[in-house]
Amino acid sequence: MEKGRIVLGCLAPHPPHLVYAENPEQNEPFSEGGWETLRWGYNKLARKLKNIDYDVMVIFTPHWATYIGTHFLGLPKFNSLSVDPIFPNIFRYKYDLTVDVELAEAMEKSASDSGIITKMMRNPDFRIDYGTITSCHMLNPDWDKPIVTISSNRNAHYYSGEVMNEQATALGEACLKAIEESGKKVVLVSSHSLSHRHFVTESPLPEDMSREHIYNHSQYVWDMKMVGMMRDGKMREVVDIMPEYTEQTIAETEAGGLTWMMAAMNFPQYPAEIYGYQSVIGTGNAIVAWDPNSETREIVL
């Protein structure tokens, strides 16, 4: 069996506003658009993914937050209605998705063998979080590939950003081992914003772009520093400053997704593909991809 490998890593923010703005048939509310910089970036990355041969999408989500270890989806099918608890006015999405349980179990075992607290989630009534749905929908609106969702263990809350980094790194390495042993070609998805301070009010028309801007300039400067380092291929350095960045910007990197993905990809030292950066209700969101194949790697923006 050929050794499995990661064929692409994606930083894929999940504001439900992006699905809302796309008006897919699965989502009940109707919008007049909005957040085009991000949506068009996502559309371009989705087109790239159509030309990449992969078997499964593995996604790490902050909106399945677990405090007792890291959990993995462990049933082959989930279909239900996802209503965003924060923005129910814009996201009521009917999903029907397939899980690669074999790979999920392999990653869970690999993580457990390396000393990480783990659990398989096998309750059929479990509702898939909107982070998973938003990122996966924007990357693959056809939903024609199975996924694996990994919960985010909240080490940053319980311990510190440094502990989060260490444990997410260990999880990334364990997942890579399982992927290599599986023989599968895998797309990794780290689902989150960068800076993550929200406005606490919403305009009457959520997609009114005259009201959209970053929460404050400090968040913007930090986000640009991170995007610049990604563009320069300095992902080890990005992970090194992650605790301070997370604290300064209340960044959603606190959940560990980016550290997990970078560890699984051995901390890329090549330039990331930048697909877009825009604020959503004040938060900073970048769509970024890491393509290990130098022949298909692009300078997008």
Binding site: W64, A65, T66, D125, H198, F199, V200
Partner: peptide
């Protein structure tokens, strides 16, 4: 996040599963 939300559905119904 957006202010203070108050449940107003007269008969909310679902089957909930805890994350942990």
């Amino acid at each position: 996040i957006v202010g203070h939300q108050i449940q107003a559905h007269p008969e909310p119904e679902w089957t909930h599963v805890d994350d942990d």
